[in-house]
Nucleic acid binder design. Structure first.
Lengths: 199, 199
DNA sequence: TTAATTTTGCTAACGGTGTTAGGTAAATTG
DNA sequence: CAATTTACCTAACACCGTTAGCAAAATTAA
């Protein structure tokens, strides 16, 4: 039956239209602007049609989430394959990870629940500065005690903070299955490594 | 005038009721369940009353955001004051930071835009595993090449990932004012420190 | 005490969201 | 040509943040 074939193709076409339209909206205006109604309007179909292709809005988001993980795996693989040395592999993969997040901001946000529907806490400048200063001070003391004068304290503070925040937010968003105890061990491991490197 | 005094007190009372009720809702059901209407119902006032105390919903959230920063600064300060040695100060503050995030999950989410209105990307188990395996492999190689046999590769992978994710998500959420170039330098700094520590 | 004015709080609406029940018109089948 | 399936839409439900406009109460002035 060629007719049912064509119908299947047409239905598939609508499905991919939904996804591509959704992506266009996200790219232009961010995740917060993505709504079922806006997709429906853009593809010139009524709202319930979308629910014939996806169970709900989350199902649409999941498509992009999975796509993101596949893309990340791909760039990591190519980075890894460039060199047989494991240490250089790690360096290269780290850079690839960073580049992926930069070039695919929207994917990364979805994959790790970062900055979605954020509340724009920008007004607390002075409150932020306080805890920043607190963490910065001992770092500067350690640096000044060493002969290595070209160490950037601001850079070191940022490294310190990144380690902490990465650890915490991975646990908070439930992106990991490790226990609290292991998480705490990771913390101590990472920080002691940081301090060793500081000297 | 005692009357205007009492009125001011009563108004202040309503304001703090709004905040405490909002907090109760968040604690019980998370940020996604917090709505102006639910607060109004709980304090037994109509919705517009809330707008007499706060410009909008975001203003309410900002209160908790600022409170969070103040709390964080406090615990960091006490941690720092426990020891004059800067290295031990860093260790202690790192632990304090971690404990703060654990005990004040809701505050931390708000402060750093983590896992808010997240899309629950849980279905991509196999997709996740792929990139995990890729990053894990070179770590295991390095570990096995060294004599230190008690190094946990799973722990090391998590450290590696935390550094990366922390760096990325801080930049994505706009929680930092550093440039892309500096951010990249932090990346290289942190990773080289990690690898050095791995050996 | 009464009239004018301010304060206080409400109802009801606007425009938006995700989701679904129920009905109509078109296309396919018998 | 009639019956049935398929495709699709309208309209609603229950939420959301936000605001305009009005009624009642409290305060002040005469």
């Amino acid at each position: 039956m060629g007719i049912t074939d064509r119908k299947k193709r047409q239905k598939e076409e609508v499905r991919s239209q939904i996804l591509s339209t959704a992506w266009a909206i996200v790219k232009e205006e961010g995740w917060q602007s993505l709504s079922i109604r806006r997709i429906a309007e853009a593809i010139e179909y009524s709202v319930p049609i979308i629910y014939e292709h996806f169970e709900n809005k989350e199902a649409i988001l999941n498509q992009f989430g999975m796509e993101g993980y596949r893309m990340l795996a791909k760039v990591l693989k190519t980075a890894k394959d460039k060199d047989p040395d494991p240490a250089r592999q790690l360096q290269s993969m780290a850079l690839a990870y960073w580049n992926f997040a930069q070039k695919n901001k929207e994917h990364y946000q979805l994959m790790f629940g970062v900055g979605m529907a954020c509340c724009e806490v920008k007004m607390c400048g002075s409150e932020k500065k306080l805890y920043k200063d607190l963490m910065m001070e001992p770092i500067m003391v350690i640096i000044s005690n060493k002969k290595n004068t070209d160490t950037n304290p601001c850079l070191k503070f940022h490294t310190f903070w990144s380690i902490l925040h990465g650890l915490v937010s991975i646990r908070l968003t439930g992106n990991s299955e490790v226990s609290n105890d292991l998480n705490k061990m990771v913390l101590e491991d990472a920080i002691s490594g940081f301090i060793k490197n500081l000297n």
